[in-house]
């Protein structure tokens, strides 16, 4: 699905990703854990195509295509999705119109006719139910005045609407209470198929009790320093990140 090789990226003089490599296959769920400021969000943004970050080396193949060659919008239409750590508030654009625009452009990209209004509304209803969002949110300005949890649920709602191949969830769990966490996890589990994949960035192993990952990676200073199965998350929970830091300083 995606193959990231030796990715280096950063801003101006500062390198943030320092040789990040990872392969994700269809049907897999990968988790990335790591201390704050280690470059997890930078990785997510760089993959999604944010121009702030300049890629200085490495390559990324996504579904057989050169990901780094595409602009953010094209990456999304090709099936990449980023659930933002900090979803942006957009006054004046309703979630409904936003989704209508996004779906229309994706379908056009894939040579499909516009979705019928009825079909669109049915899809909206189905996905709202999945993340337990009330329909009044749909006509309100996107994320404006939403609580932290509502914003995160809205991200999962959008993911469900767009049905991506690869979803990157950037700390979708932080700031969520246990009910919201369960809703988000349930959303992911319901959307999971053998044809799509998830990259879940998290700080705590709490989310991974609900979404069971196939692989857990520890990221530190811009690259993966340790990989393992789901038990690695538990180990990190127990020991914290200090041992990782120490190990890597020793190196």
């Amino acid at each position: 699905m995606i193959s990231i090789k030796n990715l280096h990226a950063g801003i101006e003089e500062k390198e943030i990703l320092k040789g990040f490599s990872l392969d994700i296959k269809a049907g897999e769920i990968h988790a990335i854990m790591g201390p704050n400021g280690t470059g997890k969000s930078t990785l997510a943004s760089t993959l999604a195509g944010r121009n702030t970050y300049e890629v200085t080396a490495g390559e990324v193949q996504f579904n057989g295509k050169d990901l780094l060659d595409m602009e953010a919008d094209e990456r999304a239409r090709e099936g990449l999705f980023l659930a933002f750590q900090y979803p942006v508030e957009i006054p004046g654009v309703s979630t409904t119109n936003f989704m209508r625009a996004a779906i229309a452009e994706k379908r056009k990209h894939h040579g499909l006719p516009p979705m019928e209004a009825k079909e669109f509304l049915a899809l909206m209803r189905e996905k709202m139910a999945l993340v337990e969002i009330d329909k009044q949110f749909m006509s309100r300005s996107l994320n404006e005045g939403f609580s932290g949890g509502e914003k995160k649920r809205n991200e999962i709602f959008q993911m469900a609407m767009l049905n991506p191949l690869l979803s990157i969830l950037d700390e979708t769990d932080s700031g969520l209470d246990i009910d919201a966490l369960r809703i988000v996890a349930n959303g992911v589990n319901k959307l999971r198929t053998k044809d799509n994949a998830f990259l879940i960035i998290t700080h705590y192993q709490r989310l991974l009790e609900y979404i069971v990952p196939d692989f857990v990676h520890v990221m530190y200073e811009g690259r993966i320093v340790k990989s393992g199965g789901k038990e690695l998350a538990l180990e990190l929970e127990e020991k914290g990140y200090d041992w990782i830091k120490e190990e890597n300083i020793v190196q």
Partner: peptide, 23 residues
Amino acid sequence: NAKFYLMARGISQEHATALLTYA
């Protein structure tokens, strides 16, 4: 940030600009 958010959902730069201007 708003423009990137829209583009990250597949909306072209041109349409993202138009949508935000309309908003």
